[in-house]
C-alpha cells in the first residue's frame, strides 16, 4: 500500500465517476433524440449544433430553479433521498473491470477500481440499497402519490432482484467465481456467457430494466397515474439528482450486463494476446463502451416502443414467470455442468 497505489486508484475513481456523469448527461440527450426520431420529430436541436449543448442547458436550468422543501416533510430525509440515490448509483461502478490492465512506466495499472472476490455480491448489495433513495424520497415528501410510488418501487425492486439473482447463479456456476474480473477473463479466452445462458441473459435484461425503473417497468414514476411518483415534490438540483441517478443506473447496469454476458472488454474477432498491453487495454475499453452504448440504446428503444405495465401484470411477470424460469434455468445449467463433469 504505497502512495502511488492510492494516487492511481483516486485517479481511476475520478475518471470513472466523470465518465459516468458525462455518459449519463448525454444519455438524456440521446434519449430525447431517439424519442424524437421514433416519433417522427427532430428532438432537441436548438442549443448548439444538433442540440448537443442541450444537457448543459438542462443542468443549468435545474441549478437556477428555486429549491422547494415542502413544509410538512422531514427535511433531513428529504435531502437524504436524492443523495442516496446518486451515491448508490455511482458506487456500483467500483467493481466493473473497464478494460484489461494497462502498463504505464513499468507499472501495471488495473482498470478496475476494486477487484474484490465478491464483486457480484457487492453489486447486489449496492443495488438493493438504491431502493432506499427512492423509498426515503417518497416517504419524506409526505405526499400520497409519492408514498404510493415509493411502495411500488420497493416491491418492484424486491421482486425483480430475486429473479435477477437466480439468473445470475447460473453464470456463477459456469465461472465458479464471484469476481467480475475472473468472469470477464473467462469470456475473453472462451465463448461469451450469452451463448451458454441465452435465457439467463433475457431474464437478467428484463430485471435490469425493472431495477432501473425504465419503461415498461417505470411504475414508481408513472407520469400519467402518479404524477411523477417519488420525485413529485422535488425541485431544483434534488430533482436533477434523482433523474441523473436513473441514467447513471442505466449506464452501470448496461456495463454490468455487457460484462456478465457479452464478454466485457473482449473485442470480438480480435485476439487480445497478440496486442501489446496498452493497445489491448484501449481496444478492450472501446469494446466494453460500444457494448454498453448498444445496450443503452436498446433500453431506450424498448422505452419508446412499449407502454407501461399495470401493477398486477408487473407482479405476475416477476413472480409467476421470471422466477420459475430463472429457477429452471439454474437447475438445467447445474444438471448440464454435472453431466459434463462426469463425462
Amino acid at each position: 500500500m504505497d502512495w502511488e497505489f492510492i494516487l492511481e486508484k483516486l485517479l481511476l475513481i475520478t475518471v470513472v465517476v466523470t465518465v459516468s456523469l458525462v455518459v449519463a448527461m448525454y444519455a438524456t440527450y440521446i434519449e430525447r433524440k431517439f424519442a424524437g426520431f421514433i416519433q417522427d420529430r427532430y428532438g432537441p436541436d436548438r442549443a448548439g449544433p444538433f442540440g448537443i449543448l442541450q444537457p448543459l442547458a438542462d443542468g443549468l436550468k435545474l441549478f437556477f430553479k428555486e429549491e422547494v422543501i415542502p413544509s410538512h416533510s422531514n427535511k433531513l430525509l428529504f435531502v437524504l433521498g436524492p443523495c442516496l440515490a446518486m451515491l448508490t448509483a455511482m458506487m456500483t461502478s467500483a467493481v466493473i473491470p473497464w478494460s484489461s490492465p494497462i502498463e504505464i512506466g513499468g507499472r501495471t495499472v488495473s482498470l478496475q477500481i476494486a477487484d474484490i472476490n465478491i464483486g457480484i455480491l457487492y453489486v447486489f448489495g449496492v443495488v438493493s440499497m438504491g431502493v432506499y433513495g427512492m423509498m426515503i424520497g417518497g416517504w419524506a415528501s409526505n405526499n400520497k402519490f409519492s408514498l404510493m410510488a415509493a411502495l411500488r418501487g420497493a416491491s418492484q425492486a424486491i421482486s425483480y432482484e430475486l429473479a435477477m439473482g437466480l439468473s445470475l447463479i447460473a453464470v456463477l456456476m459456469l465461472s465458479g467465481s464471484l469476481s467480475l474480473r475472473v468472469i470477464t477473463e473467462q469470456q475473453v479466452t472462451g465463448l461469451w456467457n450469452i451463448v451458454y445462458q441465452p435465457l439467463g441473459f433475457l431474464i437478467f435484461f428484463v430485471c435490469a430494466l425493472a431495477e432501473c425503473n425504465r419503461a415498461p417497468f417505470d411504475l414508481p414514476e408513472a407520469e400519467s397515474e402518479l404524477n411523477f411518483g417519488y420525485h413529485q415534490e422535488y425541485s431544483s438540483m434534488k430533482l436533477g439528482f434523482f433523474l441523473f441517478a436513473e441514467y447513471i443506473n442505466m449506464f452501470i447496469s448496461c456495463a454490468l450486463i455487457a460484462t456478465l454476458y457479452l464478454g466485457g472488454y473482449d473485442m470480438p474477432f480480435v485476439n487480445e494476446a497478440n496486442l501489446s498491453g496498452s493497445s489491448a487495454a484501449i481496444v478492450g475499453a472501446v469494446a466494453l463502451f460500444s457494448k454498453t452504448f448498444f445496450l443503452i440504446l436498446v433500453f431506450m428503444w424498448i422505452r419508446w416502443t412499449l407502454p407501461r405495465f399495470r401493477y398486477d401484470q408487473l407482479m405476475n411477470l416477476g413472480w409467476k414467470s421470471l422466477i420459475p424460469l430463472a429457477l429452471a434455468n439454474m437447475l438445467i445449467t447445474g444438471a448440464v455442468i454435472l453431466w459434463t463433469m462426469k463425462g
Binding site: 426520431f37 421514433i38 417522427d40 420529430r41 428503444w301 419508446w304 416502443t305 412499449l306
Partner: peptide, 21 residues
C-alpha cells in the same frame, strides 16, 4: 410481439419528419 413492435418503431427512424423548424 415486442420484437415486432420494436421493428415498427425502428422503421420510423427513416420516415419523413412531421416537424417543420
Amino acid at each position: 410481439n415486442i420484437f415486432k413492435g420494436m421493428l415498427i418503431t425502428f422503421t420510423h427512424f427513416f420516415k419523413k419528419r412531421a416537424t417543420i423548424k
